[in-house]
Simulated assay, not measured.
Amino acid sequence: MQSGLVLVTGASGFVGKWTVLELLRAGFSVRGTVRSDLKAEAVRAAVHEHLGADAVGRLSFVQTDLMHNAGWLEAMDGVSAVAHVAAQIVGIEPKDPHEVVGPALEGTERVLRHAIAAGVRRIVMTSSIATVAYGHGHETGKRTYTEEHFTNLEAMKYTWAYCTGKTKAERRAWEMAKTDDLELTTIHPGAIMGPALDEDTSISLGLVGAILEGRVKARPSNGFSLIDVRDVAAMHVAALRKPETAGHRYLAAGDYVPFPEVAEILREAYPDREISRKDVPDWVIKLVARFVGGSARQIINDIGNEKHFDRSKGEALLGRPFISGKEALLASAESLISLGLVKKATA
């Protein structure tokens, strides 16, 4: 597929906006799903700034909600493919997991069901490394995962809502693809960094902002497999252009960077900022996760071990190496500062 109308769900999100941009840049027309006119206007503004008025002319919107049927028939009308990017991501583990699991699982079912009804067979879906690297008995040391690994929720010692929702949603998507003859490709990002287009960023960039502002007082030992948002968007476009990617999963996870190294990269680039050098012991994170929850619950499975991901298949899809973790981090920080989304450094 080299052209046509592509539906992008969650078009106003961090990954969604970049996916819209890259699809338009590649010559596609795009219809985005948004939850309000205000969100649609923000996407239009980003497209106009980066691609100009002609690209805006190939962009349209429909208001929808992953948890409701209204608007989805209209959204699917006349489209040749769907990039299902929309997701509910929270920084603090919710008391009710359904707040995250519902939009992931039910939302995916709703999108695919309406695509099937409209005769749309080509789906590229944003999944996550959360659906890959958990429930395999890996508690210490270094291990590398490939597209062949699939998270086993039943074997996880500590579950969290995002992992549960994403894993159930992807499994359901593959079931529906098999039953209804869909041409499904899934993209699996790690921690997504890279330049923000406006103030509507992401949890990951919020962490970078918190480090730059000195609000992160102590650093956990665990790390992240980083990926630049521009690579994630480019992988969606590449998958849509290559029919042979249907039926495949692609990992979008590059350099593994420990949290203390993240802080040091930012300190070196911004020496005028008060970035903490204190480390928090692993046992403290485990204690907090077990009895308090919160954000600690979301990283406890990564304390004491390194999860690396085979990048060969993803880089082959792009036809080039991933943007480095350091470059993605610094692009995140630079954009947050230039957009005025972090406080100025104190004198």
Rank of each mutant, 00 (worst) to 15 (best):
K242T: 07
N222H: 14
G247K: 01
N222Y: 11
S225F: 01
R241P: 00
F224Q: 10
V229I: 06
A238S: 12
A246K: 07
A218T: 03
V229P: 02
D228K: 05
E244T: 08
S225C: 13
F224M: 15
R219W: 12
A238P: 04
R219C: 06
E244P: 00
A233C: 09
G247Y: 03
S221A: 15
D231M: 12
K242N: 15
S221G: 15
I227S: 09
A218S: 14
E244M: 08
G223D: 10
A234I: 01
V237K: 14
M235P: 04
D231P: 01
A238H: 05
H236N: 10
L226H: 03
E244C: 09
L226M: 15
A238D: 03
G247M: 07
G247H: 01
M235K: 13
A234K: 10
A233Q: 09
S221P: 00
A218Y: 08
L226V: 15
A233W: 07
I227P: 04
A234P: 05
A238W: 07
A238G: 02
S225M: 04
A246Y: 03
V229Q: 07
K217E: 14
S225Q: 05
G223I: 01
V237G: 07
R230A: 13
S221N: 10
P243K: 03
L240H: 01
V229D: 08
A218L: 10
D228Y: 12
D231F: 09
